[in-house]
Design a protein around this nucleic acid. Structure first.
Length: 525
RNA sequence: GUCCCCAUCGUCUAGCCCGGCCUAGGACACCGGCCUUUCACGCCGGCGACGGGGGUUCGAAUCCCCCUGGGGACGCCA
Protein backbone atom coordinates (compact mmCIF):
# COMPACT_ATOMS: atom_id res chain seq x y z
CA UNK A 1 0.00 0.00 0.00
CA UNK A 2 1.44 3.30 -1.06
CA UNK A 3 1.25 6.49 0.92
CA UNK A 4 -2.07 8.28 0.98
CA UNK A 5 -2.42 11.16 -1.42
CA UNK A 6 -1.29 14.32 0.23
CA UNK A 7 -4.44 16.09 -0.78
CA UNK A 8 -6.36 14.05 1.75
CA UNK A 9 -3.90 14.71 4.47
CA UNK A 10 -3.79 18.43 4.19
CA UNK A 11 -7.31 19.60 3.62
CA UNK A 12 -6.18 23.15 4.15
CA UNK A 13 -4.62 22.89 0.74
CA UNK A 14 -1.51 24.54 2.00
CA UNK A 15 0.84 21.71 1.31
CA UNK A 16 -0.88 20.17 -1.63
CA UNK A 17 1.74 21.30 -4.02
CA UNK A 18 4.48 19.50 -2.17
CA UNK A 19 5.10 16.38 -4.18
CA UNK A 20 6.98 14.20 -1.75
CA UNK A 21 7.61 11.21 -3.92
CA UNK A 22 9.07 13.33 -6.64
CA UNK A 23 10.47 16.46 -5.06
CA UNK A 24 10.68 19.25 -7.52
CA UNK A 25 14.19 20.27 -8.35
CA UNK A 26 15.19 16.76 -7.51
CA UNK A 27 18.62 17.67 -8.78
CA UNK A 28 18.99 20.52 -6.31
CA UNK A 29 20.05 19.63 -2.86
CA UNK A 30 18.13 20.81 0.18
CA UNK A 31 19.73 20.80 3.61
CA UNK A 32 18.55 22.07 6.93
CA UNK A 33 19.76 23.18 10.31
CA UNK A 34 17.29 22.43 13.06
CA UNK A 35 18.32 23.79 16.44
CA UNK A 36 16.11 23.77 19.49
CA UNK A 37 15.91 27.34 20.71
CA UNK A 38 16.82 26.74 24.32
CA UNK A 39 19.64 29.23 24.63
CA UNK A 40 22.56 30.55 22.67
CA UNK A 41 24.03 28.55 19.85
CA UNK A 42 27.25 26.87 20.86
CA UNK A 43 30.26 25.87 18.84
CA UNK A 44 29.02 22.37 18.07
CA UNK A 45 25.70 23.64 16.78
CA UNK A 46 27.11 26.37 14.62
CA UNK A 47 29.64 24.02 13.13
CA UNK A 48 26.74 21.84 12.03
CA UNK A 49 24.93 24.89 10.71
CA UNK A 50 28.07 25.98 8.90
CA UNK A 51 28.63 22.63 7.18
CA UNK A 52 25.03 22.60 6.03
CA UNK A 53 25.32 26.15 4.79
CA UNK A 54 28.61 25.50 3.03
CA UNK A 55 27.25 22.42 1.35
CA UNK A 56 24.15 24.26 0.19
CA UNK A 57 26.15 27.18 -1.14
CA UNK A 58 28.71 24.96 -2.76
CA UNK A 59 26.06 22.85 -4.47
CA UNK A 60 23.79 25.71 -5.35
CA UNK A 61 21.18 24.19 -3.08
CA UNK A 62 18.83 25.47 -0.42
CA UNK A 63 19.66 26.02 3.22
CA UNK A 64 16.64 25.66 5.47
CA UNK A 65 16.34 26.80 9.06
CA UNK A 66 13.79 24.99 11.15
CA UNK A 67 13.14 25.51 14.83
CA UNK A 68 12.60 22.47 16.99
CA UNK A 69 10.69 24.31 19.63
CA UNK A 70 8.48 21.52 20.90
CA UNK A 71 10.07 21.60 24.30
CA UNK A 72 7.70 24.16 25.74
CA UNK A 73 9.50 24.20 29.05
CA UNK A 74 12.81 25.26 27.62
CA UNK A 75 12.07 27.01 24.35
CA UNK A 76 11.74 30.75 24.60
CA UNK A 77 11.18 33.52 22.12
CA UNK A 78 14.29 35.14 23.45
CA UNK A 79 16.29 32.07 22.51
CA UNK A 80 14.76 32.06 19.06
CA UNK A 81 15.95 35.60 18.52
CA UNK A 82 19.43 34.86 19.76
CA UNK A 83 19.71 31.84 17.49
CA UNK A 84 18.73 33.91 14.48
CA UNK A 85 21.10 36.64 15.52
CA UNK A 86 23.99 34.25 16.01
CA UNK A 87 23.47 32.71 12.59
CA UNK A 88 23.26 36.08 10.92
CA UNK A 89 26.36 37.28 12.68
CA UNK A 90 28.18 34.25 11.36
CA UNK A 91 26.91 35.12 7.92
CA UNK A 92 24.90 31.92 7.59
CA UNK A 93 21.83 33.30 5.86
CA UNK A 94 19.05 30.80 5.39
CA UNK A 95 16.96 30.56 2.25
CA UNK A 96 13.89 29.21 3.95
CA UNK A 97 12.79 29.45 7.54
CA UNK A 98 11.68 31.93 10.17
CA UNK A 99 11.64 35.48 8.85
CA UNK A 100 12.62 34.19 5.42
CA UNK A 101 9.51 32.28 4.51
CA UNK A 102 9.42 29.51 1.94
CA UNK A 103 6.88 27.17 0.45
CA UNK A 104 7.58 24.29 2.79
CA UNK A 105 6.59 26.01 6.02
CA UNK A 106 5.76 26.55 8.67
CA UNK A 107 9.29 26.32 9.97
CA UNK A 108 8.57 25.95 13.62
CA UNK A 109 7.60 22.54 14.86
CA UNK A 110 5.03 23.93 17.23
CA UNK A 111 3.14 25.17 14.20
CA UNK A 112 3.27 21.81 12.48
CA UNK A 113 1.31 19.66 14.91
CA UNK A 114 -1.47 19.10 12.39
CA UNK A 115 1.01 17.57 10.00
CA UNK A 116 2.32 15.14 12.59
CA UNK A 117 -1.20 14.14 13.54
CA UNK A 118 -2.12 13.51 9.93
CA UNK A 119 0.80 11.21 9.34
CA UNK A 120 0.31 9.51 12.65
CA UNK A 121 -3.22 8.62 11.66
CA UNK A 122 -2.00 7.35 8.38
CA UNK A 123 0.35 4.95 10.13
CA UNK A 124 -2.33 3.94 12.60
CA UNK A 125 -4.80 3.18 9.84
CA UNK A 126 -2.25 1.19 7.93
CA UNK A 127 -1.53 -0.85 11.03
CA UNK A 128 2.07 0.26 11.03
CA UNK A 129 1.70 1.98 14.36
CA UNK A 130 -0.41 1.14 17.36
CA UNK A 131 -1.62 2.72 20.56
CA UNK A 132 0.25 1.71 23.68
CA UNK A 133 -1.48 1.89 27.04
CA UNK A 134 1.44 0.82 29.16
CA UNK A 135 1.94 2.96 32.21
CA UNK A 136 5.11 4.78 32.99
CA UNK A 137 5.53 2.56 36.03
CA UNK A 138 5.29 -0.60 33.98
CA UNK A 139 7.88 0.60 31.54
CA UNK A 140 10.19 1.77 34.27
CA UNK A 141 9.98 -1.63 35.88
CA UNK A 142 10.92 -3.29 32.61
CA UNK A 143 13.86 -0.94 32.22
CA UNK A 144 15.07 -1.62 35.72
CA UNK A 145 14.90 -5.37 35.14
CA UNK A 146 16.76 -5.12 31.88
CA UNK A 147 19.45 -3.03 33.47
CA UNK A 148 19.81 -5.48 36.31
CA UNK A 149 20.20 -8.28 33.79
CA UNK A 150 22.74 -6.24 31.84
CA UNK A 151 20.63 -5.93 28.73
CA UNK A 152 19.41 -2.97 26.73
CA UNK A 153 15.75 -2.43 27.39
CA UNK A 154 13.45 -3.13 24.51
CA UNK A 155 9.75 -2.59 24.66
CA UNK A 156 8.29 -6.11 24.91
CA UNK A 157 5.37 -5.33 22.63
CA UNK A 158 2.71 -5.65 25.28
CA UNK A 159 0.18 -3.53 23.42
CA UNK A 160 1.17 -4.53 19.93
CA UNK A 161 -1.59 -7.00 19.33
CA UNK A 162 -4.45 -5.70 21.39
CA UNK A 163 -7.78 -6.24 19.73
CA UNK A 164 -9.94 -3.25 18.88
CA UNK A 165 -12.16 -4.25 21.78
CA UNK A 166 -9.27 -4.28 24.20
CA UNK A 167 -8.17 -0.88 22.99
CA UNK A 168 -11.64 0.53 23.41
CA UNK A 169 -11.77 -0.93 26.87
CA UNK A 170 -8.55 0.79 27.82
CA UNK A 171 -9.74 4.05 26.42
CA UNK A 172 -12.93 3.53 28.34
CA UNK A 173 -10.85 3.44 31.49
CA UNK A 174 -9.71 6.89 30.59
CA UNK A 175 -6.21 5.89 29.56
CA UNK A 176 -4.74 8.05 26.83
CA UNK A 177 -2.33 5.98 24.77
CA UNK A 178 1.04 6.81 23.37
CA UNK A 179 1.59 5.61 19.84
CA UNK A 180 4.36 3.23 18.90
CA UNK A 181 5.80 2.29 15.56
CA UNK A 182 5.53 -1.38 14.73
CA UNK A 183 9.11 -2.33 13.95
CA UNK A 184 9.79 -5.77 12.51
CA UNK A 185 13.01 -7.46 13.53
CA UNK A 186 15.47 -6.63 10.81
CA UNK A 187 18.92 -5.33 10.15
CA UNK A 188 18.68 -1.67 9.26
CA UNK A 189 21.37 -0.39 6.95
CA UNK A 190 22.17 2.93 5.41
CA UNK A 191 25.19 4.56 3.91
CA UNK A 192 26.49 7.54 5.78
CA UNK A 193 28.31 10.02 3.60
CA UNK A 194 31.13 10.42 6.06
CA UNK A 195 31.13 7.07 7.80
CA UNK A 196 30.24 4.69 5.02
CA UNK A 197 27.91 1.73 5.50
CA UNK A 198 26.28 1.47 8.91
CA UNK A 199 24.16 -1.45 10.05
CA UNK A 200 22.29 -2.01 13.24
CA UNK A 201 19.64 -4.44 14.30
CA UNK A 202 16.19 -3.06 14.97
CA UNK A 203 16.12 -5.09 18.19
CA UNK A 204 18.34 -2.48 19.74
CA UNK A 205 15.51 0.01 19.74
CA UNK A 206 12.28 -1.89 19.16
CA UNK A 207 8.84 -0.34 18.86
CA UNK A 208 9.73 3.23 19.64
CA UNK A 209 7.25 5.93 20.51
CA UNK A 210 6.01 8.27 17.83
CA UNK A 211 3.64 10.29 19.86
CA UNK A 212 2.84 10.91 23.49
CA UNK A 213 -0.53 10.52 25.18
CA UNK A 214 -1.11 14.24 24.82
CA UNK A 215 -0.68 13.90 21.08
CA UNK A 216 2.68 15.64 20.85
CA UNK A 217 5.22 14.03 18.54
CA UNK A 218 8.52 12.71 19.79
CA UNK A 219 11.68 14.11 18.31
CA UNK A 220 12.46 11.23 15.98
CA UNK A 221 8.96 11.25 14.59
CA UNK A 222 8.76 15.00 14.04
CA UNK A 223 12.18 15.12 12.44
CA UNK A 224 11.30 12.52 9.87
CA UNK A 225 8.00 14.15 8.99
CA UNK A 226 9.64 17.55 8.75
CA UNK A 227 12.61 16.45 6.71
CA UNK A 228 10.38 14.53 4.36
CA UNK A 229 7.79 17.26 3.91
CA UNK A 230 10.48 19.87 3.48
CA UNK A 231 12.02 17.66 0.81
CA UNK A 232 15.35 17.63 2.58
CA UNK A 233 17.81 15.67 0.47
CA UNK A 234 20.81 15.59 2.79
CA UNK A 235 20.70 15.41 6.54
CA UNK A 236 23.97 16.77 7.87
CA UNK A 237 24.05 16.64 11.65
CA UNK A 238 26.11 15.70 14.67
CA UNK A 239 27.29 12.20 15.35
CA UNK A 240 25.14 12.10 18.44
CA UNK A 241 22.28 11.48 16.02
CA UNK A 242 23.91 8.50 14.38
CA UNK A 243 22.09 6.06 16.61
CA UNK A 244 18.78 7.78 15.94
CA UNK A 245 19.18 7.26 12.25
CA UNK A 246 18.14 3.60 12.04
CA UNK A 247 14.93 4.45 13.88
CA UNK A 248 14.28 7.15 11.38
CA UNK A 249 15.10 4.96 8.42
CA UNK A 250 12.54 2.42 9.56
CA UNK A 251 9.99 5.19 9.86
CA UNK A 252 10.68 6.56 6.40
CA UNK A 253 10.08 3.07 5.11
CA UNK A 254 6.83 2.68 7.01
CA UNK A 255 5.75 6.04 5.66
CA UNK A 256 6.77 5.13 2.15
CA UNK A 257 8.79 8.32 1.91
CA UNK A 258 12.15 8.74 0.20
CA UNK A 259 15.08 8.43 2.57
CA UNK A 260 17.51 11.35 2.49
CA UNK A 261 21.25 10.92 2.45
CA UNK A 262 22.87 11.19 5.85
CA UNK A 263 26.17 12.72 6.87
CA UNK A 264 27.11 12.54 10.53
CA UNK A 265 29.74 14.97 11.70
CA UNK A 266 31.97 13.80 14.49
CA UNK A 267 31.80 15.50 17.82
CA UNK A 268 33.72 18.54 18.93
CA UNK A 269 35.50 17.74 22.15
CA UNK A 270 36.73 19.85 25.02
CA UNK A 271 40.38 19.77 26.14
CA UNK A 272 39.54 16.92 28.51
CA UNK A 273 38.31 14.76 25.64
CA UNK A 274 34.65 14.98 26.57
CA UNK A 275 31.93 16.38 24.36
CA UNK A 276 32.31 20.14 24.24
CA UNK A 277 29.89 21.77 26.65
CA UNK A 278 29.43 24.52 29.21
CA UNK A 279 31.77 22.58 31.41
CA UNK A 280 34.55 23.88 29.20
CA UNK A 281 33.66 27.51 29.74
CA UNK A 282 31.29 29.62 27.73
CA UNK A 283 31.38 28.07 24.28
CA UNK A 284 28.44 29.99 22.87
CA UNK A 285 28.97 31.89 19.65
CA UNK A 286 27.81 34.92 21.50
CA UNK A 287 30.66 34.64 23.98
CA UNK A 288 33.22 34.43 21.22
CA UNK A 289 31.81 37.52 19.62
CA UNK A 290 32.01 39.31 22.94
CA UNK A 291 35.60 38.22 23.31
CA UNK A 292 36.49 39.95 20.09
CA UNK A 293 36.43 37.20 17.49
CA UNK A 294 35.59 37.99 13.89
CA UNK A 295 32.78 36.02 12.28
CA UNK A 296 35.00 35.03 9.37
CA UNK A 297 37.57 33.64 11.77
CA UNK A 298 34.85 31.64 13.49
CA UNK A 299 33.70 30.33 10.15
CA UNK A 300 37.24 29.51 9.13
CA UNK A 301 38.11 27.88 12.43
CA UNK A 302 34.95 25.82 12.65
CA UNK A 303 35.35 24.66 9.06
CA UNK A 304 38.80 23.38 9.93
CA UNK A 305 37.31 21.34 12.75
CA UNK A 306 36.59 18.21 10.79
CA UNK A 307 37.23 19.37 7.27
CA UNK A 308 40.42 20.19 5.42
CA UNK A 309 41.20 21.82 2.12
CA UNK A 310 42.58 19.51 -0.53
CA UNK A 311 45.48 21.85 -1.09
CA UNK A 312 46.21 22.29 2.57
CA UNK A 313 45.34 25.96 2.74
CA UNK A 314 44.20 26.94 6.21
CA UNK A 315 43.47 30.63 6.11
CA UNK A 316 40.30 30.71 4.08
CA UNK A 317 37.70 33.36 3.50
CA UNK A 318 34.03 32.54 3.48
CA UNK A 319 34.06 32.65 -0.32
CA UNK A 320 37.05 30.36 -0.59
CA UNK A 321 35.38 27.96 1.79
CA UNK A 322 32.23 27.89 -0.31
CA UNK A 323 34.33 27.26 -3.36
CA UNK A 324 36.32 24.42 -1.85
CA UNK A 325 33.98 22.76 0.61
CA UNK A 326 33.37 19.11 0.00
CA UNK A 327 31.58 16.53 2.12
CA UNK A 328 34.07 13.92 0.99
CA UNK A 329 36.90 15.61 2.82
CA UNK A 330 35.25 15.44 6.19
CA UNK A 331 37.25 13.72 8.88
CA UNK A 332 35.65 10.83 10.71
CA UNK A 333 37.31 11.31 14.05
CA UNK A 334 36.31 13.69 16.79
CA UNK A 335 38.23 16.94 17.19
CA UNK A 336 39.33 18.80 20.27
CA UNK A 337 38.55 22.47 20.03
CA UNK A 338 41.66 24.62 20.37
CA UNK A 339 41.12 28.28 21.02
CA UNK A 340 44.77 29.14 20.39
CA UNK A 341 44.33 28.16 16.78
CA UNK A 342 41.19 30.22 16.51
CA UNK A 343 43.07 33.23 17.86
CA UNK A 344 45.68 32.73 15.21
CA UNK A 345 43.05 32.64 12.49
CA UNK A 346 41.43 35.72 13.93
CA UNK A 347 44.70 37.63 13.76
CA UNK A 348 45.18 36.46 10.19
CA UNK A 349 41.76 37.65 9.09
CA UNK A 350 42.24 40.92 10.93
CA UNK A 351 45.28 41.60 8.79
CA UNK A 352 43.22 41.47 5.64
CA UNK A 353 41.29 44.57 6.64
CA UNK A 354 42.16 48.20 6.06
CA UNK A 355 42.84 50.57 8.95
CA UNK A 356 39.44 52.15 8.35
CA UNK A 357 37.70 48.82 8.63
CA UNK A 358 39.63 47.84 11.73
CA UNK A 359 38.75 51.16 13.31
CA UNK A 360 35.07 50.40 12.86
CA UNK A 361 35.57 46.99 14.45
CA UNK A 362 37.50 48.11 17.50
CA UNK A 363 35.52 51.31 18.04
CA UNK A 364 32.91 49.62 20.20
CA UNK A 365 35.52 48.22 22.53
CA UNK A 366 37.36 51.50 22.84
CA UNK A 367 34.11 53.31 23.50
CA UNK A 368 33.15 50.77 26.13
CA UNK A 369 36.51 51.33 27.78
CA UNK A 370 35.72 55.04 27.83
CA UNK A 371 38.63 55.88 25.57
CA UNK A 372 36.63 57.16 22.64
CA UNK A 373 33.42 59.15 22.85
CA UNK A 374 30.18 57.34 22.11
CA UNK A 375 28.19 58.39 19.09
CA UNK A 376 29.46 59.86 15.83
CA UNK A 377 33.02 61.14 15.95
CA UNK A 378 34.18 64.57 14.83
CA UNK A 379 36.20 64.27 11.60
CA UNK A 380 39.55 64.93 13.30
CA UNK A 381 38.82 62.43 16.02
CA UNK A 382 37.67 59.94 13.43
CA UNK A 383 40.84 60.14 11.40
CA UNK A 384 42.92 60.01 14.55
CA UNK A 385 41.06 56.84 15.53
CA UNK A 386 41.91 55.35 12.17
CA UNK A 387 45.62 55.90 12.65
CA UNK A 388 45.29 54.51 16.14
CA UNK A 389 43.65 51.43 14.65
CA UNK A 390 46.56 51.18 12.26
CA UNK A 391 48.93 51.17 15.19
CA UNK A 392 47.01 48.59 17.19
CA UNK A 393 46.05 46.13 14.50
CA UNK A 394 49.43 44.45 14.19
CA UNK A 395 49.60 44.02 17.92
CA UNK A 396 46.31 42.28 18.60
CA UNK A 397 44.70 38.92 17.91
CA UNK A 398 41.24 39.78 19.18
CA UNK A 399 39.24 42.97 18.86
CA UNK A 400 38.90 43.26 22.62
CA UNK A 401 42.66 43.38 22.90
CA UNK A 402 42.57 46.80 21.26
CA UNK A 403 41.87 48.16 24.71
CA UNK A 404 44.97 46.90 26.54
CA UNK A 405 46.98 47.45 23.37
CA UNK A 406 46.03 51.11 23.50
CA UNK A 407 47.26 51.52 27.07
CA UNK A 408 50.51 53.14 25.88
CA UNK A 409 48.42 55.86 24.29
CA UNK A 410 45.89 56.53 27.02
CA UNK A 411 47.67 55.61 30.19
CA UNK A 412 50.74 57.35 31.41
CA UNK A 413 52.09 57.38 34.92
CA UNK A 414 55.80 57.54 35.80
CA UNK A 415 54.98 56.29 39.27
CA UNK A 416 54.03 52.89 37.92
CA UNK A 417 57.26 52.26 36.02
CA UNK A 418 58.63 48.80 36.47
CA UNK A 419 62.11 47.80 37.40
CA UNK A 420 63.35 47.50 33.82
CA UNK A 421 62.22 51.06 33.09
CA UNK A 422 63.82 52.44 36.22
CA UNK A 423 67.02 50.67 35.39
CA UNK A 424 66.95 52.27 31.96
CA UNK A 425 66.62 55.69 33.47
CA UNK A 426 69.75 55.10 35.47
CA UNK A 427 71.81 54.67 32.33
CA UNK A 428 74.56 57.27 31.81
CA UNK A 429 73.07 59.56 29.14
CA UNK A 430 69.43 58.97 29.94
CA UNK A 431 68.67 62.22 31.71
CA UNK A 432 70.58 64.34 29.27
CA UNK A 433 68.73 62.76 26.32
CA UNK A 434 65.36 63.10 27.94
CA UNK A 435 65.95 66.68 28.91
CA UNK A 436 66.95 67.60 25.40
CA UNK A 437 64.08 65.66 23.92
CA UNK A 438 61.50 67.29 26.17
CA UNK A 439 62.80 70.71 25.24
CA UNK A 440 62.92 70.13 21.49
CA UNK A 441 59.64 68.24 21.38
CA UNK A 442 57.95 71.22 22.98
CA UNK A 443 59.02 73.44 20.10
CA UNK A 444 58.22 71.14 17.16
CA UNK A 445 54.89 70.00 15.80
CA UNK A 446 55.30 66.26 16.11
CA UNK A 447 52.02 65.59 14.34
CA UNK A 448 53.82 66.25 11.10
CA UNK A 449 55.01 63.07 9.40
CA UNK A 450 58.78 62.74 9.71
CA UNK A 451 59.07 65.47 12.33
CA UNK A 452 59.87 63.01 15.08
CA UNK A 453 62.56 61.31 13.02
CA UNK A 454 64.13 64.63 12.16
CA UNK A 455 64.10 65.69 15.78
CA UNK A 456 65.79 62.50 16.90
CA UNK A 457 68.44 62.80 14.21
CA UNK A 458 69.13 66.32 15.39
CA UNK A 459 69.58 65.11 18.94
CA UNK A 460 71.92 62.42 17.77
CA UNK A 461 74.14 65.05 16.14
CA UNK A 462 74.00 67.53 18.97
CA UNK A 463 74.35 65.14 21.91
CA UNK A 464 76.68 62.70 20.20
CA UNK A 465 74.58 59.85 21.48
CA UNK A 466 73.33 57.08 19.27
CA UNK A 467 71.68 53.68 19.18
CA UNK A 468 70.14 52.28 22.28
CA UNK A 469 71.58 55.04 24.45
CA UNK A 470 69.58 57.49 22.37
CA UNK A 471 66.37 55.66 21.68
CA UNK A 472 65.84 53.98 24.97
CA UNK A 473 65.66 57.14 27.10
CA UNK A 474 63.26 58.65 24.58
CA UNK A 475 61.04 55.61 24.83
CA UNK A 476 61.16 55.80 28.60
CA UNK A 477 60.29 59.45 28.53
CA UNK A 478 57.43 59.05 26.07
CA UNK A 479 55.87 55.91 27.48
CA UNK A 480 57.27 55.44 30.96
CA UNK A 481 57.74 51.87 29.87
CA UNK A 482 60.50 49.65 28.69
CA UNK A 483 58.73 48.38 25.61
CA UNK A 484 55.81 49.30 23.42
CA UNK A 485 54.76 50.36 19.95
CA UNK A 486 57.16 51.76 17.39
CA UNK A 487 57.87 55.36 18.44
CA UNK A 488 57.80 56.67 14.91
CA UNK A 489 54.17 55.64 14.81
CA UNK A 490 53.29 56.30 18.42
CA UNK A 491 54.69 59.83 18.75
CA UNK A 492 52.55 61.42 16.01
CA UNK A 493 49.48 59.73 17.48
CA UNK A 494 50.27 61.10 20.93
CA UNK A 495 50.97 64.53 19.52
CA UNK A 496 47.67 64.61 17.63
CA UNK A 497 45.73 63.01 20.42
CA UNK A 498 46.88 65.60 22.91
CA UNK A 499 45.07 68.30 20.93
CA UNK A 500 41.84 66.38 20.57
CA UNK A 501 38.90 66.47 22.96
CA UNK A 502 38.98 62.87 24.12
CA UNK A 503 37.24 61.34 27.13
CA UNK A 504 40.63 60.27 28.42
CA UNK A 505 43.05 63.12 27.75
CA UNK A 506 46.12 62.01 25.86
CA UNK A 507 49.38 63.59 26.93
CA UNK A 508 51.83 64.76 24.27
CA UNK A 509 55.39 63.41 24.02
CA UNK A 510 57.04 66.54 25.46
CA UNK A 511 54.72 66.76 28.42
CA UNK A 512 55.20 63.08 29.14
CA UNK A 513 58.95 63.32 29.13
CA UNK A 514 58.83 66.34 31.40
CA UNK A 515 56.71 64.41 33.84
CA UNK A 516 59.13 61.55 33.91
CA UNK A 517 61.92 63.99 34.65
CA UNK A 518 59.88 65.67 37.35
CA UNK A 519 59.10 62.34 38.85
CA UNK A 520 62.77 61.44 38.97
CA UNK A 521 63.57 64.70 40.64
CA UNK A 522 60.87 64.23 43.26
CA UNK A 523 62.27 60.77 43.93
CA UNK A 524 65.77 62.10 44.31
CA UNK A 525 64.66 64.96 46.50
C1' G B 1 26.25 -3.05 30.82
C1' U B 2 24.40 -3.28 25.47
C1' C B 3 24.69 -1.21 20.63
C1' C B 4 27.05 2.18 17.24
C1' C B 5 31.18 5.21 15.78
C1' C B 6 36.29 6.57 16.02
C1' A B 7 41.93 5.91 16.62
C1' U B 8 48.72 9.86 12.73
C1' C B 9 52.99 15.07 16.64
C1' G B 10 50.32 18.35 23.10
C1' U B 11 46.17 20.26 19.55
C1' C B 12 43.91 20.67 14.29
C1' U B 13 45.23 17.77 10.27
C1' A B 14 47.62 15.61 5.12
C1' G B 15 48.57 10.76 3.64
C1' C B 16 44.61 5.69 4.12
C1' C B 17 39.51 4.31 -0.29
C1' C B 18 43.53 3.01 -5.38
C1' G B 19 49.77 -0.68 -0.26
C1' G B 20 56.01 1.12 -2.32
C1' C B 21 56.93 8.43 -4.10
C1' C B 22 56.53 8.43 4.05
C1' U B 23 63.97 8.40 6.82
C1' A B 24 55.17 10.43 7.68
C1' G B 25 53.99 16.59 5.14
C1' G B 26 51.52 21.23 6.89
C1' A B 27 49.29 24.46 10.72
C1' C B 28 48.65 26.09 16.01
C1' A B 29 51.22 26.04 20.54
C1' C B 30 56.16 25.68 22.60
C1' C B 31 61.70 26.48 22.26
C1' G B 32 65.93 28.84 19.66
C1' G B 33 67.85 32.35 16.03
C1' C B 34 67.44 36.50 12.57
C1' C B 35 65.24 41.35 11.69
C1' U B 36 64.41 45.68 14.94
C1' U B 37 66.27 51.50 19.39
C1' U B 38 62.12 47.98 22.70
C1' C B 39 57.77 44.86 22.41
C1' A B 40 54.90 42.85 18.72
C1' C B 41 54.76 41.51 13.43
C1' G B 42 57.61 38.91 9.87
C1' C B 43 61.39 35.31 8.39
C1' C B 44 64.50 30.89 9.46
C1' G B 45 65.31 26.60 12.41
C1' G B 46 64.16 22.98 16.40
C1' C B 47 61.08 19.75 19.40
C1' G B 48 57.28 16.34 18.35
C1' A B 49 52.96 11.16 16.01
C1' C B 50 51.31 6.24 12.62
C1' G B 51 47.84 3.06 20.47
C1' G B 52 49.24 -2.58 21.06
C1' G B 53 49.30 -7.49 19.01
C1' G B 54 48.52 -10.79 15.19
C1' G B 55 47.93 -11.66 10.08
C1' U B 56 47.98 -10.73 4.26
C1' U B 57 52.18 -9.06 1.12
C1' C B 58 58.60 -8.93 -1.67
C1' G B 59 56.79 -4.44 0.90
C1' A B 60 51.56 -1.68 5.49
C1' A B 61 50.42 4.62 8.51
C1' U B 62 47.70 2.61 4.34
C1' C B 63 44.14 -4.03 3.64
C1' C B 64 41.98 -7.95 7.44
C1' C B 65 41.28 -9.73 12.64
C1' C B 66 41.73 -9.23 17.93
C1' C B 67 42.85 -6.17 22.10
C1' U B 68 43.12 -1.52 24.30
C1' G B 69 41.65 3.42 24.54
C1' G B 70 38.19 7.39 23.51
C1' G B 71 33.43 9.17 22.15
C1' G B 72 28.23 8.72 21.29
C1' A B 73 23.48 6.49 21.89
C1' C B 74 20.43 3.56 24.76
C1' G B 75 13.89 8.58 27.22
C1' C B 76 6.47 9.32 26.43
C1' C B 77 14.54 15.23 25.90
C1' A B 78 15.76 17.52 21.60
Amino acid sequence: MGPAPLLELFPGGRYNDTPLEKPMNSDRIRVRFAPSPTGHLHLGNVRTALFNWLYARRQGGTFILRLEDTDAARSTQESVLSVLEDLRWMGLEWDEGPEAGGEFGPYRQTERYGLYAAHLNRLLEAGKAYPCFCSQEELDRGRAEARAAGRTYIYPGTCRHLTPEQRDARRGEGIRPAVRLHVRPQTVSFTDMVRGPVSIHSQTFGDWILSRPDGSPTYNFAVVIDDALMAVTHVIRGEDHLSNTPKQVVLYEALGLPIPRFAHLSMILGPDGGKLSKRHGDVSVDAFRARGYLPEAMVNGLALLGWSDSEGQEILTREELVQRFDLERINKSAAVFDEAKLRHLNAAHLKAYSDEQVEVMIRLHLVQAGRLPAGPLAPEVQSWAVSLAGLLRQRIDLLTEAVPASDPVFLFDPATMDEAARAGLAEPDALRVMGAFAEEAGRVDLRVPGAYRELVMGLKERLKVKGKALFHPIRLGVTAADSGPDLERLVPILASGSRLPLPVPVLGPAERTRRVLDFLQSQAG
